[in-house]
Design a protein around this nucleic acid. Sequence first.
DNA 1: ATGGAATTAGACACAATGTTGATGAACATT
DNA 2: AATGTTCATCAACATTGTGTCTAATTCCAT
Lengths: 203, 203
Amino acid sequence: MSDRISDKRTLRTKRMIRDALTALMEEKGFEGITVRDLTTKADINRGTFYIHYRDKYDLLEQSEQEIFKELEEIVKTVSELEPKDVVNNSYQNEPISFIVRLFEYFQENSSFLKVVLGPKGDPSFQVKLKEFIKKSFLQHLVIKINQEEVLVPLEYLMAYVSSAHLGVIQHWLENDMEKSPREMAMFLAKTTFLGPAYVAGLK
Amino acid sequence: MSDRISDKRTLRTKRMIRDALTALMEEKGFEGITVRDLTTKADINRGTFYIHYRDKYDLLEQSEQEIFKELEEIVKTVSELEPKDVVNNSYQNEPISFIVRLFEYFQENSSFLKVVLGPKGDPSFQVKLKEFIKKSFLQHLVIKINQEEVLVPLEYLMAYVSSAHLGVIQHWLENDMEKSPREMAMFLAKTTFLGPAYVAGLK
DNA sequence: ATGGAATTAGACACAATGTTGATGAACATT
DNA sequence: AATGTTCATCAACATTGTGTCTAATTCCAT
């Protein structure tokens, strides 16, 4: 009795369905896709699809969850983030290393992420990604903030910064990742820690 | 021969369809809605729907366009925006007046905007709203920037700031607009012109 | 009050959905 | 190599939503 999910045939079928999903999302966006489209492209029987997924929304969700599982893996290695160091690094053109690693991962999965984060994509994925950014990045810093010196509601500040980060990732994917992961990480650190107005040259 | 669009029956029908759209989007998200749902809720014949709209996507688009038409009206009155003044205002707790006006408008249309900008909404509307923010707000400032003092690609900076603004609007709507439009405008000005790290108390 | 419109009810063909049952192919195990 | 199990295939089915149309009716503007 080996794992039922590790059957070679099953893995092959699932991989082909997921590849078809990415390809079709590029063509016509998620909502334009039918189950028949998927199974035709994947070259499998339509009935087979329903063995593995409840419907196309289930397929999308499982694919998204896999992304987050891998993102968590990357972030897991991050132990500490010192606010002081981060600000200093921003002056010294030194990006935050695990952010570089995240951009590399985005690049590896760009075809899927580009559509799912694009105008025909899934808005709930954006929400989840913002949550992930808050959890993995901002909370490390927020707990070290001197509460008395905070000028604004932290909750809104987190919404501001996490959205900004998401938007930059989207813009980067939309523009075919012409800048390097390192440049992107550097840009985010600079803009967040020195401020948008400062990096724009306004004093 | 008066306008065919000003017939009382037509106006009534369209209004009822749009109200049904907002209500149903709250219930099950845009994609879960069928034309039959809409016409049942609006209490009109299904055939009537197709007289006014090609399909449910056409209905959504027309509703969105109306929002932007009114947003343009609000912004039209803005003549000049001096970067120096804006930065000074940020120190003096003085928000940008037309941003306050925009938040008031969001509040007036919150039920529709909340869903359309929410996790079950329309990601292309987010893209359009970011474009609107760039056009109406950032470009006024960007053209006055001393190009030599800019430390980062402007294109990415605009993506950063416009996304941040959008995200704050979303968070505000999601949290039932507990802060006033003036507080929101002030928060955005402070965070953008003094910087996220500064307002968080990091020096 | 009347002509012109918007709306209605009902029917139509079509496409996609999700399910089912019989059959054959691939798999792991011994 | 034989066996029992699991997976995929194929075809058929009922159901639901779509978009279009026609004839009858109701409502509006003048």
